[in-house]
Each structure stands twice: as structure tokens, then as C-alpha cells.
Amino acid sequence: MTAIVVLLNLGLGLAGLGALRLSLARHHDAVFAVPLARRRALAWRAGGWVAIALSLAVAVRFEGWDFGPVQWLGTLTAAALALVVVLSYHPRLAWWLVVLPLLSSAALLTGLSAGGP
């Protein structure tokens, strides 16, 4: 149970931080051919924060107000480290590092809500 929630937190953290990273011109322009437009940046940023907030909500929902925030911060740190290290070797993966975790999180979340806490 906890392991699944940790995975979910990791996925949402990866997707959220990956999106936030793409809202920064320096990182965005290294991946995409089109320069970052202002509205695009705002969209990435909003999406990123939503995923991170969702991660906190999930952690609190399943682990409570004491363990939830601790687990949220821990997974966020791990996700950030993974993101930075992987992208420093394979910067082209930036887009996939947002989409894949998001999809797997969605799958996990559906499974969790079906199974109940």
C-alpha cells in the first residue's frame, strides 16, 4: 500500500518537476526547436504546480497529515534528483519524463481509488 503511494508520489513529482523545468527558457529551448512562448511557459508552470499539489493531496489522503507531508517532500527530492541526473545525460528525454510518469500515475491513481484506501 505505502509502496504504491510512494510510486504515485514519485510519478507525480517527476511529471510536475519536469513540467516546471520546461517552463524555463534555458531548458525548454535545449529540447524544443520552437523558442518558449510566454503563454506556453505559463501553461507548463501551472501544469507543474498542479501535479506537485496533487502529489501532496495524494500523500495526505493515504498517509495522513503527519506522514503525508514527509513522504511528499521525500519523494519530491528523489524525483528532482532523478530528473536532474537523467537529463544531464539524456536531455532529449525531457518530454517523456513528463508524459510517462503522468500516465503511470494516472493508472496507479485509478487502481488506488478503485481499491480504496
Partner: peptide, 9 residues
């Protein structure tokens, strides 16, 4: 799981 995260930190 949480212990691994603490260890990583």
C-alpha cells in the same frame, strides 16, 4: 520505502 528516501537524502 520512506527509509530509503531518508537514506537518499
Amino acid at each position: 520505502a520512506l527509509r530509503v528516501l531518508f537514506f537518499l537524502c
